[in-house]
Amino acid sequence: MATIEKQAAVAPTGASLYARFAIAGALGCAVTHGALTPVDVVKTRIQLEPTIYNKGMVASFRQIVKAEGASALLTGIGPTFTGYALQGAFKFAGYEFWKQYLIDFVGKENAVENRAFIYLAGSGIAEFFADIVLCPLEATRIRLVSQPTFATGLVSGFSRILREEGVIRGFYSGFGPICLKQIPYTMAKFSVYEIAAEGIEGIVGPKESLSTAGATSVNLGAGLIAGLAAAVVSQPADTLLSKINKTKGTGSITSRLIGLSSELGVRGLFLGLGPRLVMVGTLTAFQFAIYGDIKRALGATNSVEIRKVK
Rank of each mutant, 00 (worst) to 15 (best):
R160N: 06
I195T: 07
L144S: 05
A130R: 01
K181H: 13
Q182Y: 08
E194P: 10
I203T: 04
F175Q: 08
F175W: 14
R169C: 04
E164L: 14
T186D: 13
F175L: 12
I142H: 13
L154Y: 10
L144I: 11
A139I: 03
R141D: 11
L180T: 07
F150H: 09
Y193W: 11
P184V: 09
Y172T: 02
I125C: 12
V155D: 11
S146P: 12
A130N: 03
L137D: 14
I132H: 02
E201C: 05
P177C: 13
F171K: 05
I200L: 11
P148V: 05
C135M: 02
F175A: 12
A126G: 01
T152F: 11
R141H: 14
R163P: 05
I125R: 02
G174H: 10
I195W: 06
R143E: 13
A197Y: 04
F128M: 05
R169W: 11
I183N: 02
R163A: 13
A151E: 09
I178M: 05
R160D: 07
Y185A: 07
I195N: 04
A126M: 07
G122V: 02
F150M: 12
M187L: 07
G174M: 09
E164F: 08
I178H: 00
K189M: 15
E198W: 11
I125E: 10
M187K: 02
S146L: 06
A130K: 00
L154E: 13
I125V: 10
P177A: 13
P136C: 11
E164Q: 15
F158S: 03
E138V: 06
I200Y: 09
F158T: 04
E198Q: 08
G199K: 04
L134N: 08
R160H: 05
T140P: 02
E138A: 13
R141I: 06
E127T: 00
C179K: 14
R163E: 15
G170L: 01
L154Q: 14
E165L: 00
A196K: 00
L180K: 09
E127H: 01
A130C: 04
G199E: 04
V133C: 12
G166A: 01
